[in-house]
């Protein structure tokens, strides 16, 4: 129970055109509070699937293993319950919600989790003040709060919007699924700073990335390499630099 996030032997499959396709084949991962862990690995190794399974996406069927969060059985919870419990997923491809005002969406979400966490709901004025400050810290244009959720946003704007949501929802555990992809150097720094502002002894993150660049700003505690649905190797921050220089081939060969 001392552990914060504990994943053990997690297997999951997806129904692809009537065929069951095994994607996660026994993931073991443990993240203590206050740490930032990174998952790297070749395309198709199951990184995004792991993030979806942890967040509760129904398309994936968990066939074996466990995942506990704050000692609770994460896999038995609805997606919104996981959100209320403090889990946040920054989507690799944020979803557009046509006609839904971004500020309204954010406030609805923030108040939904506040309600579930037994906190008082924020009124429109208090919320907007908070949202504007958070948006400003992420160098977002003020009109982004007025626009429809992710509609017509550039790639970089969408990613910043994810970090804005994360900031406002105040999770204790955030999964960032390639939040750095498609960002220029400045945007990357701003997003990383957004994550760093949340860092606290009670906040952990699981960062999925292909690039060392983001890690220069984030300074992770542990690096995990994922391949064929399992964590095949874990190490300190130096592992990421090694992969950046040498690629995955060497590590994959070692475990094969």
């Amino acid at each position: 129970m001392s552990q914060f996030l504990e994943i053990s032997g997690l297997c999951a499959q997806i129904d692809a055109d009537g065929q069951e396709k095994q994607i996660l084949r026994g993931v073991d991962l443990s993240i203590p509070p206050g740490e930032v862990h990174v998952i790297m690995g070749p395309n198709g190794s199951g990184k995004s699937t792991l993030s979806y399974v942890l967040a509760g996406r129904e398309d994936y069927e968990v066939t074996a293993g466990t995942a506990t969060f704050h000692g609770q059985n994460l896999l038995a919870m609805e997606p919104e319950e996981r959100a209320a419990a403090g889990l946040f997923l920054a989507f690799q491809s944020p979803i557009e919600l046509p006609g839904v005002n971004n500020a309204n969406f954010l406030r609805t979400a923030v108040n939904a989790v506040r309600r579930a966490r037994g906190l008082e709901e924020l009124d429109a004025v208090a919320f907007l003040k908070m949202a504007r400050e958070a948006a400003k810290a992420l160098s977002m244009a003020p009109d982004m709060l007025k626009r429809n959720v992710n509609v017509g946003f550039s790639g970089g704007e969408k990613k910043r919007n994810e970090v804005l949501q994360m900031t406002l929802l105040q999770p204790t555990f955030a999964i960032l699924d390639e939040t750095d992809s498609g960002l220029d150097v400045d945007a990357l720094r701003i997003v990383a700073e957004g994550v760093n502002r949340l860092r606290a002894p009670t906040f952990s993150a699981l960062v999925i990335t292909h690039h060392q660049k983001l890690l220069d700003y984030l300074v992770p505690d542990r690096i995990h390499v994922m391949a064929r649905g399992r964590i095949i190797l874990s190490g300190g921050p130096e592992l990421a630099r090694q992969i950046d220089q040498e690629g995955y081939t060497k590590f994959l060969a070692e475990v094969a």
Partner: peptide
């Protein structure tokens, strides 16, 4: 499903998510 999951991941119940999406529509 993407839209529903996105909303629910942000803490909205399924019915609130439908309401939000429909009202947006």
């Amino acid at each position: 499903e993407d839209q529903l999951f996105y909303c629910r991941q942000r803490g909205l119940s399924e019915e609130d998510a439908v309401g939000l999406i429909v009202n947006g529509f």
